[in-house]
């Protein structure tokens, strides 16, 4: 089977700035593939190359077997693209925007209504409202409809949930699952690490380099340390205390707990608990926990930093 997206050794420079540094990845047909990393990691540059708006300096990128440099017209017909910022005409209405995008791809809304029905139904009551007057959540739904109206086989979503609240983000992911069901391949980028676990496979990207690829479960399973969730009062002095502690490799806050990494076999739960209690902290709890993607990202980013 041809991979839906194939990236081989792609680099891109802007002047002296290395935006992408020998990136390789492969996306299988019908999967939701996440590109997870902070601002400035190179996510948008990679998207622009894949949707044929930018040429790589070197390396090769294919979308459904078509070359981004040579076959760009064919690729453009087969993909949907929702860029991070602009994708709607603010002074056109909801219906006009959708018509416009359908016409651009030589089709009509009527012809593809089934394809977008579930999402479009939620914004159809506002069909005569200008896009500029929509709330953030509705704009996002309209942009998604516009990217889907020509039945693309691969969908590129560049940070669709940035700045979107936790509830709307959840709704958006439910829409993505429905789109996947229809057989569409989805490449989605996000700076929110908690969205990583919602993808079938992910690549963690930082400073133009992919630091890990796999299923979220595989990446979590490869975390090299033992991890404890520690809480106690007062919380911030406890964080500083743990960071100074000789057996602690890393310590970061995660909501109401601090995640404390130790070498396996070095420090046990009891040792850690006693250490903290002896230092005078109150309401101390220590429990062994599984790492999440954010723990892994920080660990891998650190390793990568030590290599270079």
């Amino acid at each position: 089977m041809i991979e839906a997206i194939k990236v081989e050794n792609v680099s891109k420079h802007y002047g002296a700035c290395v935006a992408l540094d020998h990136i390789s990845l492969g996306v299988q047909p019908g999967e939701i593939y996440g590109l997870i990393g902070p601002d400035g990691a190179g996510k948008t540059t990679l998207f622009r190359i894949l949707v044929t708006l930018l040429l790589p300096d070197n390396g090769k990128a294919l979308v459904e077997g078509l070359d981004v440099a040579r076959d760009y017209m064919a690729i453009r017909r087969n993909i949907g693209y929702m860029p991070g910022r602009f994708s709607l005409y603010q002074d056109l209405t909801v219906a006009e925007n959708l018509d416009f995008f359908a016409t651009m791809f030589g089709t009509s809304v009527a012809e593809n209504y089934q394809n977008i029905k579930e999402i479009y139904a939620q914004i159809e009551p506002f069909r005569d409202r200008r896009a500029g007057q929509l709330s953030g959540g509705m704009k996002q739904k309209l942009a998604l409809c516009c990217a889907l109206v020509h039945r693309p086989s691969v969908l590129f979503l560049d940070e669709p949930t940035t700045g979107v609240d936790a509830v709307s983000r959840k709704d958006f992911w439910n829409m993505l699952y429905r789109i996947r069901k229809a057989g569409v391949t989805i490449l989605v980028s996000t700076p929110y690490m908690d969205e990583a676990s919602l993808c079938d496979r992910i690549s963690l990207i930082q400073k133009g380099r992919i630091i890990k690829t796999g299923t979220p479960e595989e990446i979590v399973a490869q975390y090299p340390h033992r991890l404890f969730g520690v809480s106690g009062n007062p919380a911030y002095p406890l964080l500083k205390f743990l960071r100074r502690s000789p057996n602690v490799l890393r310590c970061f806050s995660f909501g109401s707990e601090h995640h404390v990494a130790v070498s396996p076999g070095q420090t046990g739960r009891e040792d850690l608990l006693k250490q903290i209690q002896d230092a005078g902290f109150r309401n101390v709890t220590v429990r062994e926990i599984n790492p999440n993607i954010e723990d892994c990202f920080m660990e891998l980013a650190k390793e990568e930093g030590q290599k270079s």
Binding site: P38, L239, M298
Partner: peptide, 20 residues
């Protein structure tokens, strides 16, 4: 106002150290 949007996970936490 959303001081840490888009920042990498470690920097986000170091930023909270400054807040503390």
């Amino acid at each position: 106002d959303e001081p840490t949007g888009g920042v990498d996970p470690e920097t986000r936490r170091l930023f909270w150290d400054l807040i503390y």
